[in-house]
């Protein structure tokens, strides 16, 4: 076990855990937007920053990526930390003024929109946390979506911003998106996501539409299970 002092409290955490888990384990809350539990971490949102002290040096680190260290002194609420979090929230509120989640978080943190920033109108509620891209690559395994361009023009989407052949319509990206940016509409036999229509499979027992045919085909190919076996919904299985 590793011993640290976090916000004045003695805290122990298992070796090889991240600071974020150690802090939360100690009952201290840390806001995050990009550290989704089902995907790897990128450190993109910067909300989880904390100030650490080693010897005489203090510095700001990304707690979701910083491994615990013996004797570390951690301050999760220093002025510098609060200043970064405030700025990140102000910037995100200006980028995605419509996001309910951001509004709620800002309220909890006592942060208001910075009136000097002109709110964006073209970004939807996408905060570029990358969870969708990572889930598609790491969990689903199709890498249908990616992050294109760079700097302030960066966007998430399908290659060439066209319908993607690689997409199987599974909706995992919708599930991990913290701000409900990705639109998926399902109308019984049809599902639409990332601009493409998917035919839904009706359960061979109950007749309910339950998954895109392309997704079942993908699973069939990967696992060797026949399409007939897969054409039964989870409830009837």
């Amino acid at each position: 076990m590793i011993n640290m002092i976090i916000d004045g409290k003695n805290v122990t955490a298992p070796k090889d855990t991240m600071l974020l888990e150690a802090i939360r384990g100690a009952g201290i809350s840390v806001p995050t937007l990009c550290a989704h539990e089902s995907v790897s971490r990128s450190g993109a949102c910067r909300l989880c920053v904390v100030e650490i002290k080693k010897g005489n040096r203090t510095r700001i680190v990304t707690s979701c990526l910083y491994g615990v260290e013996e004797g570390l002194i951690v301050n999760t609420k220093s002025d510098r930390v609060k200043n970064v979090r405030r700025l990140v929230m102000e910037l995100l509120l200006a980028r995605c003024p419509e996001s309910d989640l951001l509004q709620k978080m800002a309220k909890e943190m006592g942060i208001e929109a910075q009136p000097r920033f002109t709110p964006d109108t073209d970004k939807g509620t996408c905060i570029l946390c990358r969870s969708c891209v990572r889930v598609c690559e790491e969990v689903v395994g199709v890498s249908a979506i990616g992050l294109f361009a760079r700097g302030s023009r960066k966007t998430v989407g399908t290659p060439f911003m066209e319908q993607s052949d690689a997409c199987i319509g599974c909706g995992a990206c919708v599930y991990v998106c913290p701000t409900n940016h990705i639109v998926m509409t399902s109308t019984g036999e049809k599902r639409k996501i990332w601009g493409r229509n998917f035919k839904m499979q009706a359960c061979s027992k109950c007749g309910k539409f339950f998954a895109p045919v392309d997704q079942l085909k993908f699973i069939s190919k990967k696992t060797g299970t026949s399409m007939e076996d897969l054409a039964v919904c989870t409830e009837c299985r």
Binding site: E137, I145, G146, F148, T158, P159, A166
Partner: peptide, 8 residues
């Protein structure tokens, strides 16, 4: 290489 990575 997935088309999305090439386009990235």
């Amino acid at each position: 290489i997935p088309a999305s990575r090439v386009y990235e």
